[in-house]
Computed example of a mutant assay.
Amino acid sequence: MNWRDLLYFSKGERRALTLLLCLISISWIILFVTDNKPDYFADENKKVTEPVKTTLNTITKGADTGKRQIPSSGSKNNSSRKKKEFHPKETKNTLGRKPFPKTEKYPAGTIVELNTADTTILKKVPGIGSTFARRIVKYRELLGGFYSVSQLHEVYGIDEERYNTMKSWFSADLSLICRLIVNKVSMNDLQKHPYINYRQARIIGQLRKQKGKLTGWENFQLLEEFTDADRERLTPYLSFE
Rank of each mutant, 00 (worst) to 15 (best):
N2P: 14
N2A: 09
N2T: 11
N2M: 14
W3N: 09
R4S: 05
R4V: 01
F9D: 02
F9S: 09
K11T: 00
K11H: 02
A16W: 06
A16L: 00
A16N: 05
L17E: 06
T18D: 13
L19R: 11
I24L: 15
S25A: 15
I29A: 11
I29H: 12
I29M: 15
L31D: 12
F32D: 03
V33C: 09
N36W: 12
Y40G: 10
Y40T: 14
E44K: 12
K47W: 04
V48P: 06
E50C: 11
K53M: 08
T54A: 08
N57C: 08
I59D: 09
G62A: 11
G62M: 07
D64G: 10
D64T: 12
G66E: 06
R68I: 08
R68Y: 05
Q69H: 15
S73N: 10
S75E: 11
S75T: 10
N77C: 00
S79M: 13
S80G: 07
S80D: 11
E85K: 04
H87S: 09
P88Y: 05
K89I: 04
K89W: 03
K92T: 08
N93I: 02
L95M: 02
R97P: 06
P99M: 07
E104Y: 09
V112E: 07
N115P: 02
N115Y: 11
T120Q: 13
I121R: 08
I121K: 10
I121Y: 05
L122A: 07
V125W: 08
P126K: 03
S130K: 13
T131W: 09
F132L: 13
A133W: 08
Y139S: 01
R140Y: 00
L142R: 11
G144I: 00
G144T: 01
G144S: 09
G145E: 00
F146L: 00
F146D: 05
Y147W: 14
V155R: 14
Y156Q: 15
G157C: 10
G157R: 13
I158S: 01
D159R: 04
R162F: 13
Y163L: 10
M166P: 08
S168H: 14
S168L: 08
F170P: 03
S171C: 12
D173N: 09
S175I: 02
L176W: 05
L176H: 05
C178W: 15
L180E: 08
V185W: 07
V185M: 09
V185L: 03
S186A: 04
S186Q: 05
N188T: 12
D189P: 04
D189C: 04
Q191E: 06
H193C: 01
H193S: 10
Y195C: 03
I196F: 00
N197Q: 02
R199M: 10
R199L: 13
Q200C: 03
I204E: 06
Q206S: 14
Q206W: 13
Q210V: 12
Q210D: 13
K211F: 15
G212I: 06
K213A: 13
T215A: 03
T215Q: 11
T215W: 04
T215K: 04
G216F: 00
G216L: 03
N219E: 14
F220D: 05
F220K: 06
L223V: 14
E224A: 07
E225A: 05
E225V: 05
F226A: 01
F226E: 02
T227L: 13
R231K: 10
R231V: 09
E232T: 15
R233Y: 12
L234F: 03
L234W: 07
T235H: 08
P236L: 00
L238K: 01
E241K: 15
